[in-house]
Nucleic acid binder design. Structure first.
Length: 190
DNA sequence: CTCCGGATTCGT
DNA sequence: CGAATCCGGAGT
């Protein structure tokens, strides 16, 4: 099936840039996951940047381990992790291989075939059918990727706030590394 | 091997 | 505000 003329898959070079820039530019883009012939699509409305091993809130601050392996890999891949014994959360890996940075997807606005709530990183994964099977997945594949939203996409205003749930990270907890579309109803914590 | 705590969510 | 619920990572 030919891709829609109004949306285009983002190239590797989109992810191979400064993580804060990638985070902000992901807002308004479409996350696409094709499962069993069903194309689930959500508009990204809230994200957080995790900058690398020096960022004490980032998983990669613990160094290269089995869990963080994908974060250390090349850009444009999905890093999914399991937390609190029950939840999956999805990141997109940014910057060059060896630079362990990523952007956490925190909330989506449903576009097509999305069931249930999407306000929060774990709810987002549940609604989009994302779990351990997607960890390490190439975002230039045909079943999991991010696409531009098309020419009809409205202009957005971006809000910057501290990241959620990283109080253990000292001064890094106060950095303004959470970004969301101002006024959007699907933001998890406006 | 054991122990600890988490980039969350839900119910009280 | 505390429980749910499991696994990676750190320590013995």
């Amino acid at each position: 099936m030919a891709p829609r003329a109004t949306t285009r898959k983002l190239p590797r070079s989109f992810y191979d840039r400064d993580t804060v820039v990638v985070a902000q530019e992901l807002l308004g883009k479409h996350l696409v996951h094709v499962v069993g012939g069903v194309e689930r699509v959500g508009r990204i409305v809230e994200v957080e940047a995790y900058l690398g091993p020096h960022d004490l809130a980032a998983h990669s601050a613990k160094g290269l381990t089995e869990r963080t392996r994908v974060m250390f890999g090349p850009p444009g891949h999905a890093y999914l992790y399991f937390v609190y014994g029950m939840h999956w959360c999805m990141n997109v890996v940014t910057q060059a291989e060896g630079v362990a940075s990523a952007v956490l997807l925190r909330a989506l606005e449903p576009v097509r075939n999305v069931h249930g709530r999407t306000q929060g990183p774990a709810l987002l994964c549940k609604a989009m059918d994302l779990d351990r099977r997607c960890n390490g997945h190439d975002l230039l594949s045909d079943d999991l990727y991010v696409a531009s939203a098309g020419r009809e996409a409205p202009p957005i205003r971006v809000a910057r706030r501290p990241r959620i749930g990283v109080d253990y990270a000292g001064h890094w907890a106060r950095r303004l590394l959470r970004f969301y579309i101002r006024g959007n109803a699907y933001v998890s914590r406006p």
